[in-house]
Design a protein around this nucleic acid. Structure first.
Length: 647
RNA sequence: GCCGUUGUAGCUCAGUGGUAGAGCGCUUCCUUGGUAAGGAAGAGGUCAUGAGUUCAACUCUCAUCAACGGCUCCA
């Protein structure tokens, strides 16, 4: 028998008979691995365990510990869930059923069946019944005609539609018991490893994501090789709920909503407004140092402004209705973006190349209509404040300007310990380039500049082709919230369109008129979303420089309230902020309440402290830092804030 | 906007076809205390809103509004 060379992930080389399967390889290594292996990657292609390897190859065995292993596991689970549902609801039709980040879903047309969470239990039971019976996944290559024939007969028009889009000769079915599905695979060998399953939610989902087509029922599920892992996962979800910014925002009295004010319109309460102001002031300071000028523009703008910018044509119909003046019938729009206003500022006087770059910054509140079902706490609202700025520069300056912006973004992320962000560079479609405005030369220059800057800065950015806006390439920053949803925060966008539309110019050294390039940028993205994500990130334990209260003073008894007041005044004179718990409660109680309120420093004052002019310091979390003078404590806070700000 | 779930005291939640309950919080009083809950009393609710069924609706039905989980869209 002919031998082939298999390179394993640890770099070791082993010889096997030609036609060896990943399962056999796993088995040759250890019984344990053979029991746990879910799928394999052969030369970077994920395959099933029965895949016959016919030439020298790199093989990685995938277990539950690998994302790709989990995905195969979940994808197979999706099939079993579909099988369970088909048995319980004969005649339903199936759309697609992929694995997702955590678990999987299947889009199903339930025909006349009504389905709700009361049905979950029986589907789960049926699922486990099938899984326990150790059903094998059998791969079958079929011709397009056969495939179409099968699903036409079954009456599943969704699968027929999918098959019609496929090339003949590449179509495979997977059979698991009596359920046959169109599927590229790969799959588990059999269902015996799927030990736990739960339907997590159901939702409507348009067929092929198209609002105009039929809405199917998307059934979300998650499965695990061990029952305990399911329990752990559910516990983790419970834990994550405690970090939810909507819950924390209410508890810490940072912001609120009122349906009487209007849905999706956040209201910042005093403590939240103060916190936001600290963030804004911090960024203003950085921007001042980086040569930005602060501007302020109105919350509405004449409809013609947005006709010039193009926003009206694109968003006019899907936005708040225009505001009209009673006498003249002029139309105004609530500002959906700040850029048109800033373009007007740029255009307000002649500019020389010596004036560039011109950096105009504004914490500009914008208003956008979002569908009611889309609103979500502070992360998706109808009125929000962008930490916006527009940089007008020459093509030569683009790269440095981009780099300058990126530095600000990264500094903010570093300071707030946002280590798990993802950066995405969005470039033009590689093939279809008709839809992009701006010269080929400028685009190339800008795209290259972004790539170079990312490299020089050492950030780990994913490049996505075809994701650029029609007006220019961009770089976005995404951060996950407590439940794992991704939100876009910062963005840096190059724009050739608006300078064109507003006919912006500068006089070059050649005494000719040139068109500047514009960069839109918002390091936070929006103050609302940023604070939401920050709140979830730190679970309400804000860094000291941001915390609404930096300390709370707990008098041991009301004999020491006067002393507490004198300390508070001293600290306020040094621009530290805090409060006093004057309730007639025992110290243990006051400490507990202060801990629950996430007070960074708890200062106990009683007889000892009063007679010595000191405070007893306890840090949030229970660390006793001993007794110190008030000046020492002020110094302690200042040093900590300084350290945080210099990260 | 669409699909599904939910809506009872400031918060977290019980509850029943015969016009409401707990814990926490709040108010008052007692207690004046040393590193995560001292004691007692009291106030507080058109049971989201509107219609319908019924002798009777917080409970059943429908509609509306809002919140929550998704879908299309986006900071």
């Amino acid at each position: 028998m002919e031998k082939i060379n298999i390179t394993l992930t640890d770099g070791s080389l082993k010889q096997f008979d030609n036609g060896v399967t990943p399962y056999q390889i796993a088995h040759s290594i250890s019984d344990g691995l053979a029991r746990n292996v879910l799928a394999a990657k052969v030369d970077d292609v994920v395959v099933g365990l029965d895949f016959a390897i016919n030439n020298d190859a790199k093989v990685a065995l995938l277990t539950w510990n690998e994302e790709e292993g989990k995905h195969v596991f979940w994808h197979s689970s999706a099939h079993i869930m579909a099988a369970a549902i088909e048995q319980l609801y004969p005649g339903v039709k199936f759309g697609i059923g992929p694995a997702v980040e955590t678990g999987f879903y299947y889009d199903i047309d339930f025909m006349d069946y009504k389905i709700s969470d009361t049905d979950f239990k029986k589907i789960e039971d049926k699922f486990l019944e099938i899984a326990r019976s150790k059903v094998q996944f059998v791969r079958k290559e079929v011709s397009k005609a056969e495939a179409l024939d099968y699903f036409t007969q079954k009456g599943d028009e969704y699968k027929v539609e999918l098959i019609n889009d496929l090339e003949d000769g590449t179509i495979t079915f997977y059979e698991s018991g009596c359920f046959t599905d169109l599927c590229r695979g790969p799959h588990l060998h059999d269902t015996s490893m799927i030990k736990a399953f739960k339907i997590t939610s159901i939702a409507g989902a348009y067929w092929r994501g198209d609002e105009k087509r039929k809405q199917l029922v998307r059934v979300y599920g998650v499965s695990f090789p061990k029952a305990k892992e399911l329990a752990d996962y559910l516990a983790l979800l419970e834990e994550a709920k405690k970090r939810d910014h909507r819950k924390l925002g209410k508890e810490l009295e940072l912001f609120m909503f009122s349906s009487r004010v209007g849905v999706g319109l956040p209201i910042w309460l005093p403590r939240g407004a103060d916190l936001r102001a600290r963030l804004e002031n911090f960024l203003k300071k950085i921007q001042r140092e980086a040569g930005y000028s602060q501007v302020i523009t109105p919350h509405i703008g004449n409809v013609n402004l947005y006709k010039t910018s193009g926003h009206y044509q694109k968003y006019g119909q899907d936005s708040f209705r225009p505001i009209t003046t009673p006498e003249e019938g002029e139309e105004y729009f609530l500002k959906p973006m700040n850029c048109p206003h800033h373009c007007e500022i740029y255009a307000s006087k002649p500019r020389s190349y010596k004036d560039l770059p011109c950096r105009l910054a504004e914490f500009g509140t914008v208003y956008r209509y979002e569908q009611s079902g889309e609103l979500h706490g502070l992360t998706r609202v109808r009125s929000f404040t962008q930490d916006d700025a527009h940089i007008f520069c020459t093509p030569e300056q683009l790269k440095d300007e981009f780099k300058g912006v990126l530095k600000i973004v990264l500094r903010i992320f570093r300071m707030l310990d946002f280590n798990e962000y993802t950066a995405q560079i969005s470039l033009r479609d590689k093939v279809n380039r008709d839809k992009y405005i701006g010269s080929e030369e400028n685009w190339q220059k800008a795209e290259q500049a972004i790539i170079d800057v990312a490299e020089e800065t050492g950030i780990n950015a994913v490049v996505e082709y075809g994701e650029a806006a029609f007006y220019g390439p961009k770089m976005d920053f995404m951060v996950k919230d407590a439940i794992g949803r991704k939100w876009q925060l910062g963005t840096i966008q190059v724009d050739y369109n608006l300078p064109e539309r507003f006919e912006l110019e500068y006089t070059g050294s050649d005494n000719l008129k040139h068109r500047p390039i514009m960069i839109h940028r918002a390091p936070f993205g929006s103050m609302e979303r940023f604070v939401a994500v920050l709140l979830e990130h730190c679970a309400g334990d804000f860094p000291l420089w941001l915390a609404p209260d930096q300390f709370i003073i707990l008098p041991i008894s009301d004999k020491y309230i006067d002393y507490a007041n004198s300390i508070k005044s001293k600290m306020e004179a040094k621009e530290l902020r805090g409060c006093i718990d004057t309730r007639a409660e025992k110290t243990g109680r006051k400490i507990r309440d202060a801990e629950v309120k996430k007070m960074p420093y708890i200062l106990l004052v009683g007889e000892n402290e009063q007679s010595n002019g000191t405070v007893s310091v306890r840090k949030h979390g229970g660390v006793d830092m001993g007794t110190m003078t008030i000046d020492e404590f002020i110094d302690l806070i200042n040093k900590e804030v300084e350290k945080e700000l210099s990260k």
